[in-house]
């Protein structure tokens, strides 16, 4: 299963990549929305884990474009900035779910697996 992590916090990307690697996920990373879209243009990705607040293009706009570019890709929003309005906006745009940092790695993995199931990938 191929996962794309999008977050401007490199520490977070490193930590998550390491942990997901250990669970045999294939992981790509991007530090911002523009780079994330570039990855998606060339690489088939099952699930995107997307930060909401990033410099440049924010997560909601990135989500909108991902859904336009590859509608079958499931997107999990994972944010350090809790905001009810943004949560509903993201869900309304088709986010698979909205999670808050810090998230237990097991909870995130269950969520990724569930999202992958929906995008048609089961292993």
């Amino acid at each position: 299963m191929h996962i794309l992590l999008v977050d401007d916090e490199t520490e977070f990307l490193d930590l998550m990549t390491k942990r997901l690697d250990r669970r045999n996920f294939q992981v790509s990373t991007a530090a911002n929305g523009v780079d994330a879209l570039k990855v998606l243009e060339t690489t088939p990705v099952d699930v995107v884990v997307l930060d909401v607040r990033m410099p440049g293009m924010d997560g909601i706009e990135t989500l909108r474009r991902i859904k336009a570019l590859t509608p079958a890709t499931e997107v999990i929003l994972l944010t350090g900035h809790a905001n009810m309005e943004v949560a509903l906006e993201g869900m309304n745009l088709g986010a698979f779910d909205y999670l808050l940092k810090p998230v237990a790695i097991n909870d995130l993995i269950f969520k990724i697996q569930d999202a992958a199931k929906k995008s048609g990938k089961t292993t």
Binding site: A82, M84, A87, L88, M91, D97, L100
Partner: peptide, 20 residues
């Protein structure tokens, strides 16, 4: 307030999921 905002955002996202 981070707790209050966090729980509100999480509960709203879950209720949206239920409705969806």
């Amino acid at each position: 307030m981070t707790f209050v905002r966090g729980q509100c955002a999480r509960v709203a996202a879950n209720v949206f999921q239920i409705v969806r």
